[in-house]
Design a protein around this nucleic acid. Structure first.
Length: 646
DNA sequence: TTAGGGTTAG
């Protein structure tokens, strides 16, 4: 009873050749005894039982060819499942060749399965070739290919196929729409996605949890959290994915508190957080720099028995590093199940941001020693570390090393290199570097030079750099403030006034400075000259006391950091009301002695505050950690971890 | 037979 597929002799040869090549363990002829029926059943069982084995079980094709096994749909499906699971493209091709020589050659469902397998194995070329060859295609065929493109970083191809499918009169289902929405979440505009949203309405899928989650994720990726929320609220039922998409959206936007609130809401409603949830929540916490809340969520992971797998572990260590605890970050690193390039980059960045440049370079060397291949981000992290620590030689070597790894330096690498040279006082060298570099200098490159000129009080080059920046964007407040500061700190107050006038005339708005401080489980925000805080009198009194004490040990207020008041006395008074000083005073009032104070600022920490905090850390005998947009400052016993190099 | 969510820098 041989129910073997019909082969043409030529095709049989090809298939056998492939099988032998890929799966040499063929069965001897003597295995085909009289009790063939028993063998058939037995081998099918072996195939099914071995579903999770490392092999794909291709030897059964040999059995089919020899006639001892009857090919059926479920057998081929099992083989394709294994190919998908193990990402075995070559073996999927062999099974495909075998099917082409069988009765299933023109079977639409089988062809859809093959197409899907090619997509899952990452070969969109094979999938597209089969798609073109298929005489009949149904909605599943189109959906499988659209999904393939969407899942394999080719969203445009997916978006081109969708209208073609519609033009043929095929109606999309929830699978199609979810994939199209995923593809629509890329690019610069949500226009396509909004049109797909209309289709979801038309076909009645907006309430479907799969389509709805993709839809809200699409909006969240474009930062349209209100629209994302509207979709979330209208979902008939929610699941972990819907929650995760919304949490990730808030995390991406840097809206840490929203993300954390969502996480609490998810727990309250009885949903189990997944790896995706924790990754997003730690990303959110990292942006908040909130150590206490970070520890709370970490405890959740431990309690749920979650292992520190790639994404979760990396985001967790990044959270600790960004929240000011590099020691905890290192502990997490040591406990990671697998350390990849992101784990190493995060640690290097952590050390760089904490002013431990030499340590960052040491970790980079160790990473190379154990043959972890660095990527462009690694080099940027190392260059930043060198820049923050004044490690000029190491930085130059790092840039050279990029060639060895065939990584072309990008704008960010050049900016950091200019920053490194400039901070080290090599302003001429930095200028020569800009002229020689293979890309056109951008506003960011000139910005780095301007920052260095301000630091080293080089008015002429600084003015030149500022003029170049204004050519790119005359309304950018950053360079205006830097330029005015540069003039003010050199005593050229009339020039500083000219810049202020220019800003006013061009309607350049300076971003208001804000500081946040975390006390136990609450976060308090302060703005400069804060008059609205209910404890403003007490806060000012505390700062006045500290100010008096630090003046006794050498603090000299530097009012060049106050631009908008002409009168010297008024400038000095405003200087003492900077948001970070108010935040520090408040933290001292509300936290127990010895408690580390953690302050976050939305712009670069002011030079006078930096000086005041160094003295204050000695007077109040506290560790003060300030995280600004550039880096961390650990103030302890009169010194800052940045070594005044920031 | 076809579906959705997560990391490092600047």
């Amino acid at each position: 009873m041989l129910k073997c597929s019909t082969f043409s002799s030529n095709k049989a040869y090809i298939v056998r050749y492939f099988i032998t090549f890929a799966a040499p363990a063929t069965f001897p002829d003597s295995d085909f005894s009289d009790d063939t029926q028993d063998l058939v059943i037995q081998d099918k069982d072996i195939l099914r039982k071995s579903h999770h084995d490392s092999g794909t079980g291709l030897h059964v094709l040999d059995l089919i060819h020899r006639g001892s096994l009857e090919p059926d749909r479920s057998l081929y499906n099992t083989l394709f499942k294994k190919c998908t699971l193990l990402k075995k493209l070559d073996e999927a091709r062999i099974v495909h060749a075998h099917i082409n020589a069988s009765l299933f050659k023109d079977d639409l469902v089988m062809q859809n399965t093959i197409l899907n397998t090619y997509c899952k194995c990452g070969s969109l070329d094979d999938a597209h070739k089969l798609f073109e060859e298929m005489p009949v295609k149904d909605m599943v065929t189109w959906t499988a290919l659209i999904t393939g493109y969407s899942q394999n970083d080719q969203p445009l191809n997916a978006l081109v196929l969708f209208p073609q499918m519609l033009r043929l009169g095929l109606k999309p289902n929830q699978f199609t729409l979810s994939s199209v929405l995923k593809a629509s979440g890329t690019g610069t505009s949500d226009r396509y996605g909004r049109q797909v949203h209309a289709f979801c309405f038309k076909y009645g899928y907006v309430w479907n949890v799969y389509v709805g989650s993709s839809l809200l994720d699409m909006y969240a990726r474009f930062g349209r959290m209100d629209d994302a929320w509207s979709v979330f609220d209208t979902l008939e039922s929610k699941n972990e994915v819907s929650w995760n998409a919304l949490i990730a959206g808030h995390a991406r936007k840097g809206e840490g508190e929203h993300a954390l609130k969502m996480f609490s809401g998810m727990l309250r409603q009885g949903f189990e957080p997944t790896h995706f949830t924790y990754s997003s929540v730690f990303t959110a916490l990292a942006s908040m720099g909130s150590l206490e809340q970070g520890k709370w969520v970490h405890a959740h992971v431990i309690k749920s028995g979650g292992k520190l797998v790639a994404y979760v572990g990396n985001t967790l260590l990044d959270m600790y590093a960004k929240s000011g605890s590099i020691d905890d970050a290192r502990k997490v690193f040591n406990r990671l199940e697998r350390r990849d390039v992101v784990s190493w980059n995060s640690m290097i960045t952590g050390y760089a941001q904490h002013g431990l440049g030499k340590e960052a370079v040491r970790w980079f060397a160790e990473m190379l020693r154990i043959r972890i291949v660095p990527n462009e981000i690694t080099f940027l992290c190392v260059l930043t570390a060198c820049s923050h620590a004044g490690l000029l030689d190491e930085g130059q070597k790092c840039l050279e090393l990029m060639k060895k790894y065939s990584i072309e330096p990008q704008e960010a690498h050049y900016v950091t290199m200019v920053d490194l040279l400039g901070r080290a006082g090599r302003l001429d060298q930095a200028m020569k570097f800009i002229i020689k570099m293979p890309i056109e200098p951008t506003a960011a490159v000139w910005g780095a030079l301007l920052g260095a000129c301000r630091m080293h009080k080089n008015m002429d080059l600084g003015t030149y750099a500022a003029e170049r920046i204004f050519e790119f964007d005359p309304h950018d407040s950053g360079p205006h403030v830097l330029l005015a500061n540069m003039y003010a700190s050199a005593g050229r107050l009339s020039d500083a006034a000219k810049v202020r006038k220019m800003m006013k005339e061009s309607r350049v708005k300076k971003e208001p400075a804000c500081s946040w401080v975390e006390t136990k489980n609450a976060i308090h925000m302060f703005v400069a000259n804060d008059d609205a805080h209910p404890q403003r009198e007490e806060i000012r009194k505390v700062w006045d006391e500290i100010c008096g004490k630090i003046k006794e040990i050498g603090y000299i207020p530097d009012s060049s950091h106050v631009l908008f008041y002409a009168d010297q006395q008024e400038r000095e008074a405003k200087l003492q009301l900077h948001s970070e000083k108010l935040a520090l005073a408040f933290a001292l009032m509300t936290t127990p002695p010895g408690f580390t104070i953690r302050i976050k600022k939305n712009i670069r920490v002011c030079g006078d505050c930096h000086s005041a905090f160094k003295f204050a850390s000695k007077v109040v005998v506290r560790e003060i950690i300030v995280r600004d947009t550039n880096r961390y400052h650990h103030f302890r016993d009169g010194f800052c971890s940045c070594g005044d190099y920031w």
